[in-house]
Design a protein around this nucleic acid. Structure first.
Lengths: 147, 147
DNA sequence: TCTGTTGTAACGATTATAGTTACGACGGCC
DNA sequence: GGCCGTCGTAACTATAATCGTTACAACAGA
């Protein structure tokens, strides 16, 4: 399916900011987050920009600038993040319209659209059950590397 | 997510073969199916080849060759088709391993893996609820074009 | 032997993601 | 008022997947 890592990286960034704030810091920079995720700060800024448009984070500019949560981790779900960073549908229709003179070609798109809608609704429901609070909890529950 | 149309086209092909067989025909050719789906026969042959490896269809070569169902439409689910034509997972991890010295970087992958597994399990369950028999039924239920 | 179809390789077009560089905009601070 | 660190964003490249297309050998029935 050529899956992408946008949801993963966005969740990573949110968990990082959330933990950082709990440690008493006000503001996180894209450079810090990028170092943790081992990627480029611009990638982080692009993703956080989409999360800001969705009202999940806030950004400050100027000196001492950076990112902070606009909502508590417990009130943000993976569905919020998913909708902010994943534009398209899960499954695509035909790239060209099927033969409308054929019974199957004529009915296949409405049929699949209805089926896909149900499936995506279930997916959204599952995503909505997972808060970023739980993500951070699972992150911290990971076993530490033995020395 | 850069969704693809593989599941849609594969379902289209199966529904087409199924209906064709119910009309008394033995064998469907990739050219006929490609005409209905408005794409290239090679695209159909590639997809049907994956369905054949999954045991859903059979192919005959030589003159008068073509494709037929290996199982009834009612016993084939969208999950069977999905597993046959969609290799990867729904969501990808980081392309590079996160900073293992960071608490979040260290715990994020196990955390997300567990969460994604649950979500994909639900998705598979939903896909398994839809048979190709139902797909064909929905296809035939689509309203005909008014003259 | 002829013919029609599968099976598959090879290549190009298109698209999305991700990484990178560059630089203007902004705002706190000295 | 100027300095400096960070955001915001454009632009470009690299990589990869999908899809379409051409080509052709393999195959099997007539």
């Amino acid at each position: 399916m050529s899956a992408n890592s946008r949801l993963t990286i966005a969740a990573h960034a949110l968990a990082w900011i959330g933990l950082y704030q709990r440690q008493g810091h006000e503001i996180a920079t894209s450079e810090q987050i990028a170092a943790s995720a081992n990627t480029n700060p611009v990638v982080i800024r692009r993703l956080l920009g989409e999360l800001r448009r969705a009202g999940l984070v806030e950004s400050r500019r100027g000196a001492g600038a950076g990112w902070s949560l606009a909502r508590e981790l417990g009130s943000i779900t993976l569905l919020d993040v998913y909708e902010a960073v994943e534009p398209g549908p899960l499954f695509a229709m035909h790239r060209t319209t099927p033969d409308q003179g054929c019974v199957v070609g004529h009915g296949i798109q409405p049929a699949m659209r209805g089926i896909y809608q149900d499936i995506e609704e279930t997916l959204r429901h599952e995503l909505a059950r997972v808060t970023l609070e739980k993500v951070l909890r699972d992150v911290l529950a990971a076993p530490r590397q033995p020395l």
